[in-house]
Simulated scan of single mutants.
Amino acid sequence: MNKEERDQFLEEVMVAHGSELVRLAFTYVKNIEAAKDLVQNTFIKCYERIDHFRYEAQIKTWLYRITINECKDYLKSWSYRTEKAVDFLQTTVKAIRPSVEEEWLVKSDRQQMKRIVLSLPTNYREVIYLYYYQSLKIEEIATVCSLNENTVKTRLRRAKQKLKEKLEEVHVHG
């Protein structure tokens, strides 16, 4: 691939996958600015390594793998351990305009669900995010996370159980 083709390819990939990669990174680092920086690193690596991409998997799966690795490296880094994460996932576009009270309740429920999902251990949080928020299939999650499909199924089942327990706890105590 020549430089011009590589530049064009990168631009297309950034437009097609940038937002979803930022959301994916955010589920790991819980900080929107850090997530954006990590995705920028993903695109740099994509640009540098595109000639090594074998097209055995989808480009999206490859980008997810790079992003997850970037996030895991970041989470191990000294800079991460010294900063406090406060940002939450971006809310989705509302289909209808509810009343102020309804809007507050829906937003409150979403924020509570985000807090609960983000409170899960990373190995559960990543499968929940990829399965429910990115609509990836079990086999795609296995590829992205470099896991056996049965491991993904087990983690997903355990993550759902943990979510259920946390939701029940919130409703009993909340």
Rank of each mutant, 00 (worst) to 15 (best):
T91V: 12
E48P: 00
T151W: 02
V127N: 02
E126I: 15
R125G: 04
K166G: 01
K84N: 04
D37Y: 10
D73L: 13
V86M: 02
K162I: 00
I128A: 05
D37I: 05
R110V: 14
E101M: 14
V117N: 03
L118M: 04
K45V: 02
I68W: 00
V100A: 15
I50A: 00
Y64I: 12
R65K: 14
S108G: 02
Q58F: 10
S99C: 10
L118K: 00
E83P: 00
C71Y: 02
M113W: 10
D37N: 12
K72F: 06
V106L: 15
E48Q: 10
C145Q: 12
E101W: 12
L105I: 12
A85S: 15
A35Y: 06
V93G: 00
V144T: 07
S108P: 03
T61G: 06
E165A: 03
C46W: 01
D87I: 06
P98M: 09
P98F: 08
Y131R: 07
F53D: 04
I116R: 13
K137Q: 13
T61R: 03
T143Y: 11
E169L: 00
E70V: 04
L118F: 05
R54H: 08
M113V: 12
Q90K: 03
K107V: 06
K160P: 02
W78C: 05
H52G: 08
H171N: 00
T122E: 11
I44S: 00
L75A: 04
A85V: 13
D73Y: 09
V106S: 09
M113H: 08
E140I: 11
A85E: 15
Y131S: 09
K107T: 12
R97E: 08
K76E: 10
N123G: 04
K94V: 09
I32S: 10
T61I: 13
K166C: 01
K166Q: 07
D87Q: 05
K162R: 04
K114A: 11
L105F: 14
S79Q: 14
Q111E: 13
I59V: 14
K162T: 01
R49F: 03
K137H: 10
V170S: 04
D73F: 05
L105T: 08
K160A: 06
V93I: 08
L163S: 09
L167W: 13
S119W: 02
W78P: 04
P121Q: 03
T154V: 11
E140L: 14
L156M: 11
I141Y: 08
Q161D: 09
L75E: 07
